[in-house]
């Protein structure tokens, strides 16, 4: 449905255009939930903004195409893309408190969004607005309809924002860090809401986050960005249980998941690359424990690790020395044997 092909973005620094996102491609099917994971400076928000045509003034598209239902979104005349944005594609931002206008009642804001694309009477818009509030899990729609944003809690506000985003039954919703500002208990409820909406209304979601646990909980497929480059892409079970790129592996190791004091978690040494620093070779090489001389000089090409046996999505990764489950296991067995030998000799 949505196809992003070799998308490159450039940032104006001084008088030079420097590459910030380099040749990223991915696709989105109907009803799919795609998670884009990246740390700060990985270009995940820029990619999302490019999809929504709201790039900041000092950023431009350097190459590649974004195709939605066989229409090239970049060359589409303004009149036509106004019909797509907000109606067929919509956006949810990180902070719900900022996304809503503080001096307008909630109901008015939802009706605004509805009437922007439909010419119906205000009373029809009101029934629609109340229905959507109920659909996003608000127990007293009538009260919330009359409330101002400051009267609602953070989770409720995010539900309202989600309601505004899905009121036209869009085919794609792009959520940029939509659960990051919320409490842990509310986060899970919102993620569950995404899942029900995706199932009931057949909406595709692109969730952008640095929160691996959230993405792992909800997404079908995963795109891993680092320093503006696509490092690994595939179905959730491919990426998480058959991890190929060392960065993905290290990142998963860094989550203090059920770790108990005493067992050290592994951090990744070094710092995140600056997006504007020009580099030859693999972008992760300076922090990678598997890096060799090749990694410093040769940029890795995108390798394909076989098609997923159900979904048919190819597992892709960019690395000279991809990890292999067999390799890791084999190494452990070898070391164990060596240990046994040395002990028997002694």
């Amino acid at each position: 449905m949505l196809e992003v092909n070799q998308l490159s973005l450039e940032v104006l620094v001084g008088k030079k255009w420097l590459p910030a996102v380099k040749e990223v491609s991915f696709s989105l099917e109907e009803g799919e939930i795609l998670g884009i994971i990246g740390e700060s400076g990985s270009g995940k928000t820029l990619t999302a903004k490019a999809l929504m045509n709201i790039l900041p003034p000092k950023v431009r598209i350097g190459g590649g195409t974004i195709t939605y239902k066989n229409q090239n979104l970049q060359t589409l005349p303004e009149k036509e893309w106004r019909n797509i944005y907000g109606k067929e594609m919509s956006f949810i931002f990180q902070n719900p408190a900022v996304a809503l206008n503080p001096v307008i009642r909630i109901g008015e804001q939802i009706m605004d969004a509805y009437l922007a694309h439909k010419s119906v009477s205000r009373s029809t818009a009101k029934t629609e607005a109340l229905a959507i509030l109920e659909q996003v899990g608000i127990t007293e729609p009538e009260r919330v309809f009359k409330a101002y944003p400051h009267e609602l809690s953070g989770g409720m506000k995010q539900r309202v924002v989600i309601g505004i985003a899905v009121i036209h039954q869009p085919s794609i919703v792009i959520a940029d860090e939509a659960t990051t500002a919320l409490d842990a208990t509310v986060r899970k409820q919102i993620l569950d809401l995404f899942r029900t909406l995706s199932r009931d209304l057949n909406i595709s979601f692109i969730l952008i986050s640095h929160d691996i646990a959230a993405i792992k909980y909800i997404a079908n497929s995963i795109l891993l960005l680092y320093g503006g480059e696509k490092l690994e892409y595939g179905k959730v079970d491919d990426v998480f249980s058959n991890t190929r790129h060392p960065y993905t592996h290290d990142l998963l190791q860094a989550v203090p998941h059920h770790a108990i004091k005493g067992q050290r978690i592994k951090g990744i040494p070094g710092t995140l690359p600056n997006i504007t620093a020009s580099k030859s070779g693999c972008i992760y090489a300076p922090r990678c424990s598997y890096a060799t001389d090749d990694c410093e000089t040769l940029p890795p090409t995108l390798m394909e690790g076989g098609r997923h046996f159900v979904h048919g999505l190819v597992h892709q990764y960019a690395c000279h020395h991809p990890l292999d489950k067999m390799n890791i296991v084999g190494k452990a067995v070898l070391e164990e044997r060596r240990h046994e030998q040395t002990t028997t000799i002694n």
Binding site: E39, H210, L251, A254, V255, P256, I265, G267, I268, L272
Partner: peptide, 10 residues
């Protein structure tokens, strides 16, 4: 960031 968080905790 996650990768940095772990090193600060350690």
């Amino acid at each position: 960031d996650l990768s940095v968080q772990a090193t600060i905790l350690n």
